[in-house]
Design a protein around this nucleic acid. Structure first.
Ligand code: SF4
Ligand code: SF4
Lengths: 161, 161
DNA sequence: TCTATTTAAGACAATATAGTCTTATAACCT
DNA sequence: AGGTTATAAGACTATATTGTCTTAAATAGA
């Protein structure tokens, strides 16, 4: 698996938050319900993203979590690195210790190209971009319904369509 | 991590075998020593590759394991699929069940491109191609020395260089 | 036939990842 | 103050991956 489950959950939650920028702090419970992710597990993952300064949380009533910056400033790469670390993009295929251009394995040349293409994809994709796409095309972030249904958008502020 | 450790060990062993096509059956112990991989663990991995018909084994003295086909006919993709399965190339980034073009997640378009580039790289790389490169450039398959030293090539059939 | 060598198979242990639960702490409200 | 709502932190469990060890079976050769 390319990304750990923690990382995938983190991305999905970040996308969810970017999608509904209507509210400020969103309770984690609400996110975990809508995305079908274990509340406590998600809480820990969001704590990681908070300590990486991508999010900030607030306790008590009206508390929750929110993105610190605008989603257009946050790339998927930042989320991935905050959770899974940079290793995927430094080490790699055969994962020999201290590998690199000086003492490469036979796969190095080809792998480096592939690795960079993954990295470029993640670095050139922002939360806002993804969120806009999810809203416009009613794409999904969880098992069942599209994001519009999950967020109740079709009932509320988007009835005109 | 893109590939499991089992998969990486399998690839390294396959490359090793392709590099020294001098011998027929190579004892697994010899491979595990040269590549610094646990003998018993490697044995199990090679059993997986054997049941996928990429290798065949033979017991007893002069026994060991060898590639069934010429290494030029075997791609890295085949080795990866035999050990890690095809899932990496069917499911993916957000890993939602039943995902695909009909009901995609917001990442689908970009991910599909990246995913295919990984797949193409693996499908277009043969063991022989890698092995030739490893010999010519004295690249390495294990932590320490180049493949030539590991195989003793510089002492034996390559002294002229 | 007996012994040495080798893979096969499966039990077992160690570690990493994933997930659950409880208690503490902060904030808000009456 | 006291009760409610929320995150924080950490213990704990479950599962998957990785690695080790023991025993069995096959082969070769003396
Ligand atoms: S030499 Fe290159 S391809 Fe090989 S393990 Fe190191 S970074 Fe990866
Ligand atoms: S929709 Fe596409 S990118 Fe998203 S999880 Fe499914 S296959 Fe992957």
């Amino acid at each position: 698996m390319l990304l750990s489950k923690s990382c995938v959950y983190g991305i999905r939650a970040a996308l969810y938050m970017a999608t509904r920028k209507d509210r400020d702090f969103i309770p984690i419970r609400e996110i975990s319900n809508d995305l079908d992710i274990s509340f406590h597990f998600l809480t820990k993952i969001l704590q990681q993203l908070s300590s990486a300064d991508l999010m900030e949380s607030f306790r008590g009533p009206n508390g929750g979590i929110r993105l610190t910056k605008d989603g257009s400033d946050v790339t998927l790469m930042e989320v991935v690195v905050a959770i899974d670390g940079i290793e995927l993009f430094t080490e790699c295929a055969l994962g020999l210790p201290g590998c690199g251009v000086e003492k490469p394995c036979p796969l190095h040349d080809k792998w480096a190209v592939t690795r960079d293409s993954i990295r470029n994809m993640l670095e050139n994709t922002t939360l806002t971009e993804m969120a806009r796409k999810a809203r416009e095309e009613d794409l999904r972030l969880s098992d069942d319904s599209g994001i519009r249904t999950a967020l109740g958008l079709d009932k509320e502020d988007d009835e005109q369509e």
